[in-house]
Design a protein around this nucleic acid. Structure first.
Lengths: 237, 237
DNA sequence: GGCAATTTCAAACAGACGTTTAAATCTACC
DNA sequence: GGTAGATTTAAACGTCTGTTTGAAATTGCC
């Protein structure tokens, strides 16, 4: 049995437009990209290896050659989910660096949380499927993904909570945790909704809300979330 | 071929505690309840008819006898998803009736949106699986479910938007739509998180946030959402 | 150019899936 | 109590799944 070489993480898009030259992207990566796309559309269970290999233009057996099994392929796809979350962390660190030696404003922190994810979700070939997958993982938690999030996402949550706490020292730490999760939910909700196959909000509002407009989404989200954080604590009314 | 009689919609719980007498709940309902539970745990594709029939304590063929096929069973389960949403509508109408001849406050409208869903999600045998399914349907939109939501949920959204508009006439209609969707996202996020199998928020916060406490969740949500609605419009900063 | 290692391929595999069948069992009514 | 209908059952069906196989094709190297 020959040994399959390790995959090299890279974000080269599948070059949808340049259908002429194919040999650019190696099969191993084509499989991973196809898997992300198919998984995001049909779910991990609903997706078929034959669907994936058809899309990747490789033989069926290539999946078991490069990745050991479907489960292993799923695991490799899950690792890619860190991309959107790490982009969020990078944006936070950038805005903290920009504000040094002081601290970024609440609005800047929230924008660091929102904007990278919104931007990412515009990339139909790369980011958008990842966002869809993030939602699926949330909706159907597997034991493995729970551990995955705990280890790699929780520290980033803590970073944001700390940054918000510095911008609004009067807020109780518990309240910040609550509201950060609410903000995350609002963000994911509108990104789900802005999927071209859904567009519920745009339809509901009779076209008043343009979920295709990055600046509109970001602006609306930041305004809502900042106001939410600045409100009185839960017991105060 | 004998004709299966139509199912009668009812919300009798599976009587988990009273394991002695089984003959109370007819098999047709046991199948539907088991289907909701199994679907919510494994997804529509991941779930197996054999898992469902095992849990319902019926023969495998019973599913095709009472419901024509798995797809038809899925459709029947999807109809149950209207329960949580209709509870939301009922709460809105109740609070509007209580405020007559005036209009309910913004806080009252938001509470009507939040509280029934939070309460429902506490019912481990009935409501909780439905909430989990709602998230799955959002994450993996099928063409059928999209139409389903459009026809039956959109009118309820409109009712809430109108009620919020009456409580805060200064808000632009577009902004209300945006923020209603943000609020919905915050609600679903924290309900997902409060699932006993996850409890991320409780862990992240080191126990500061008790997602098992109905009043805590409701209070935190209402405070955040009301403040979010009361904030300045997106362009004003 | 020839050899070795790697990659591709068509074909088949066992197992699980949803579904169907026909006989067995139960239930209600005369 | 016997009969017609409804329900339950065990077993099998064809199909599709992920995976494996061994041979063919390709690639890199001396």
């Amino acid at each position: 049995m020959p040994t399959a070489r390790a995959a090299i993480a890279s974000d080269v898009p599948p070059a949808a437009g340049t259908a002429g030259r194919d040999a650019e992207v190696p099969p191993e990566q084509r499989i991973l990209l196809a898997a992300i796309a198919i998984f995001s559309e049909h779910g991990f269970d609903g997706a078929t290896l034959r669907q994936i290999t058809d899309r990747a233009r490789v033989n069926l057996a290539a999946v078991n050659y490069y990745y050991r099994s479907k489960d292993e392929l799923v695991r490799r796809v899950l690792e890619r989910l860190m991309g959107p979350i790490q982009a969020r962390l990078a944006a936070l660190e950038a805005c903290e660096a920009a504000a040094a030696p002081g601290f970024p404003t609440l609005e800047a922190v929230i924008e660091a949380m929102v904007r990278p994810t919104v931007t990412l979700s515009r990339d139909e070939s790369g980011g958008r499927p990842l966002i869809r997958l993030l939602l699926q993982v949330r909706a159907l938690p597997r034991p493995e993904t729970a551990r995955f999030f705990q280890e790699r996402v929780d520290p980033i949550v803590e970073r944001f909570v700390a940054a918000i706490g510095r911008a609004r020292p009067e807020l109780a730490r518990a309240d910040i945790f609550w509201r950060y999760n609410f903000a995350l939910g609002a963000l994911m909700q509108v990104l789900t909704d802005s999927d071209p196959s859904l567009l519920r909000l745009a339809r509901q509002s009779g076209g008043l809300c343009d979920t295709g407009d990055d600046e509109a989404i970001t602006g609306q989200l930041v305004a809502f979330i900042v106001a939410g954080f600045e409100g009185p604590p839960a017991g105060a009314r």
